[in-house]
């Protein structure tokens, strides 16, 4: 047996396999793109502002004009939020969606914001009706990393008639929710909605849009 030839075949197998793996990896990764980053707009040396929206469908926002694979799913328009470190983040959320009761009324509270409050259509509140929730914006801390960042804000449901046209969709006048929180050092955090808005058959409303990345969930990167 020719040793060098065998070695050549061995190396070729490794390279071919590695190549196949890389190709497969890229194919899979490109199949589920992370949406383009939504950057926090700096308003002063210590503050910046971030604007989000929650829609009852996916026609508007980062899923494309036709709504992507699931045009009827509820969505936050962006799943990839980028904010600066050690800054006050002033968030405005336009909430266009209806809703109902929380599974766990715990999430009717405003938690982790500056002052423990939010401004809901001009009024400062610390909690809202747990039976009238559209979504929540819940940003979780990741224990073990030595960093604490927990923010949870309820977004009351909106039952007004659709009167506004955005892109191809008709939406009601939105509920406007404003709140602020402070970031620490760099890191990536996960956020998602804790209102069961994802329609599953029997269990809990956490299926479909709630169980698919990029609709009712995303990341917040502190840079």
């Amino acid at each position: 047996m020719n040793g060098s030839k065998s070695l050549g075949i061995a190396l070729a197998s490794v390279l071919l396999g590695g190549g196949a793996l890389a190709l497969a990896g890229f194919a899979l990764a490109s199949d589920t793109p992370h949406q383009a980053a939504l950057n926090c707009v700096r308003t002063s040396a210590t503050a910046c502002s971030l604007q989000l929206s929650t829609y009852p469908d996916s026609l508007e926002g980062a899923h494309g004009k036709t709504g992507g694979a699931h045009p009827t799913w509820v969505t936050y328009a962006n799943d990839n939020l980028v904010v600066p470190e050690n800054t006050t983040i002033n968030v405005t959320i336009h909430q266009y969606d209806g809703g109902g009761s929380l599974n766990d009324p715990f999430f009717d509270q405003v938690m982790g914001t500056i002052g423990g409050t939010m401004v809901y259509n001009g009024k400062t509140v610390s909690h809202v009706d747990p039976n009238n929730i559209g979504h929540t914006f819940t940003l979780r801390n990741i224990p073990g990393n030595g960093k604490t960042l927990f923010v949870s804000v309820p977004l009351p449901a909106d039952y007004r008639n659709p009167t506004i046209t955005i892109g191809t969709g008709q939406y009601p006048k939105p509920n406007i929710i404003k709140f602020s929180f402070k970031t620490g050092g760099p890191g990536t955090y996960e956020w998602n909605c804790e209102y069961p808005c994802g329609d599953a058959r029997v269990s809990s409303g956490f299926g479909y849009a709630m169980s698919s990345f990029g609709y009712m969930s995303g990341t917040l990167t502190v840079k």
Binding site: G144, T148, E190, N192, S217
Partner: peptide, 19 residues
Amino acid sequence: FDVRCEQFCGLNHAFMDAL
């Protein structure tokens, strides 16, 4: 101490922790 979820529970199972 840490509370972690040790039963697979869907999308964000990896992040289901509590302090």
